[in-house]
Amino acid sequence: MGRAAPILTVLCGIFVLWYLAAIWMNATWVYDQASRSNTSVTLAQVIPQTMAQERPLLPPPHQVAQVLWDGVTGQAVTSKRSLVYHGYVTLRGTMMGFALGTLLGVALAMAIVRFRVMELSVMPWAIISQTIPIVALAPMILTVSNQIGIDNREVPKAIIAAYLSFFPVLVSMIKGLRSPDQMQLDLLSTYGASEPQTFFKLRLPASLPYFFASLKVAVAAALVGTIIGELPTGAVEGLGARMLIGSQFGEPLIMWAALFAAAILAGGLILIVGWIERAARARMGVPA
């Protein structure tokens, strides 16, 4: 309870602000309607009408919650209207991109720590890659993969997700693999340890705390990448596509529901990574 209190306080504050903003933004429409029918409305009449519009500028929380709930439980999970279905499509893309990005990040970090020439040649490009806005790059990746005959939408999506998620893993793993000090390395050389032995007995285990810290960032980045990958495809599946449809057809409720579904998905993924991290730390003897 002691830990929940501050979080709940902030949450309440957000809800209050959200409702106030919803009243303020949606009132315009109510006043508009009133002036068209030449009637006047009092503030007390306006407020209820800002709470249940079909196309609100800013839907209040309970409307978003309702649409979200309906999208999750009100449909068969195979339906194109089901957020579970779209969430699953996005989750699948995220996991593929996350796996690919993590693998790439770890592999590059190993190469960079081992070969100085790799640091000089690859590292600047890795940094530059992150300065290019992914929204500009995503359509190109989609077009190119289409051109070279990859019809499957999953592949370009995973590439975009991996593009965003490899970087935090790369940076953390370089730091982690270099974290053993000279004394630790000297100790192993007094045993005549080979390079692979030094890597597996010392560098790799020493880098694990850094690795897990970066996974939390990487999994969130992979989700963002996947959603961006779903936007410009004219994709019909995934939370990104859902957001785009909501925006194009003027259905803000659909958009908001998809947005929150994505946020909940991200939170869940980060929780899971946290559990795995804790299990690994317990095995490695870190005091709780």
Binding site: M183, Q184, D186, L187, L202, P205, A206, L208, M284, G285, V286
Partner: peptide, 9 residues
């Protein structure tokens, strides 16, 4: 060495 340098894991 001066520090025990045991692996914490």
């Amino acid at each position: 060495f001066q520090a025990a340098g045991l692996y914490p894991w």
